[in-house]
């Protein structure tokens, strides 16, 4: 359950910004989560209100933007969206280790009241 520490890190950064902006309350916090980020969205939802308690983010809404995996097949020189755990190129069948996107774990945006 490292989602608690991930939520806490995101809320910490968001609250620091909100304080900088004159202590306005946070209404929405948006995270961008890659399918390969190693986090479970449900666990984030669960942890979020707990780590917000007693901060400028208390009562705010968490919104997740999911980023699918894209890889590059080097032999074919083409990008593709893999299906399943083996990232086999749909043209040549060779599994790819070149992950172009899908590892994102980013604080994207906040809305201040």
């Amino acid at each position: 359950m490292h989602e608690v520490s991930i939520c806490a890190a995101a809320v910490r950064a968001a609250v620091a910004k909100a304080e900088e902006m004159g202590g306005r309350r946070i209404a929405v916090l948006r995270l961008r989560i890659g399918a390969l980020a190693g986090v479970v969205p449900e666990a984030l939802d669960f942890a979020y209100p707990v780590v917000c308690r007693g901060t400028l983010a208390e009562g705010s809404r968490l919104e997740l933007e999911h980023v699918p995996v894209r890889c590059l097949c080097e032999p074919c020189g083409k990008e593709f969206s893999p299906q399943g755990a083996v990232y086999a190129c749909p043209s040549c069948g060779v599994p790819s280790a070149r992950i172009v996107s899908g590892r994102e774990l980013e604080l994207a945006q906040i809305e201040l009241e």
Partner: peptide
């Protein structure tokens, strides 16, 4: 009067 602030920063930036 909601204010939108864009970040685009890694959540684990401190760890990184």
């Amino acid at each position: 009067d909601r204010l939108i602030v864009d970040f685009a920063q890694a959540v684990l930036a401190e760890n990184d």
